[in-house]
């Protein structure tokens, strides 16, 4: 059943995959993230991190002291938009 339940919808990580990661010895959220890829997609973990953390603790893992490291940008930003920034004069090249 748990292989049919999506935990991370962006990266298609199922509850079963998280259970398997924990069974393989991944006891903390950062390791489970790096084993399953959860939280690295479109929403960057904003939807799944809480569920995954709860699952981890339920299965005997380490309670995370903080969510997974948030990675900028806060929302997806186009390269064209970023290229317009002028934080530093563009270097010649």
């Amino acid at each position: 059943m748990s292989d049919k339940i999506m935990a991370c919808r962006c990266e298609d990580v199922t509850v079963h995959e998280i259970e398997e990661a924990i069974a393989r010895g991944h006891r903390d959220l950062e390791s489970v993230k790096r084993y399953t890829g959860l939280g690295t997609g479109w929403c960057q973990g904003k939807q799944c991190a809480r569920l995954c953390a709860a699952l981890l603790v339920e299965k005997g893992g380490e309670p995370p002291s903080s969510p997974i490291t948030p990675r900028p940008p806060y929302r997806p930003v186009s390269l064209a938009h970023l290229a317009q920034l002028s934080l530093q004069k563009e270097r010649g090249g």
């Binding site: 900028p72 940008p73 997806p76 186009s78 390269l79 290229a83 934080l87 563009e90 090249g93």
Partner: peptide
């Protein structure tokens, strides 16, 4: 953010078609 600027400028010059593609995460 300076990295994103330098990267986006160089990348969109080299591959202009990527301008509309969005950055999801940086580290």
């Amino acid at each position: 953010p300076l990295f994103l600027q330098l990267y986006a400028q160089a990348l969109t010059e080299t591959m202009p078609i990527l301008g509309s593609v969005r950055v999801l995460r940086q580290w």
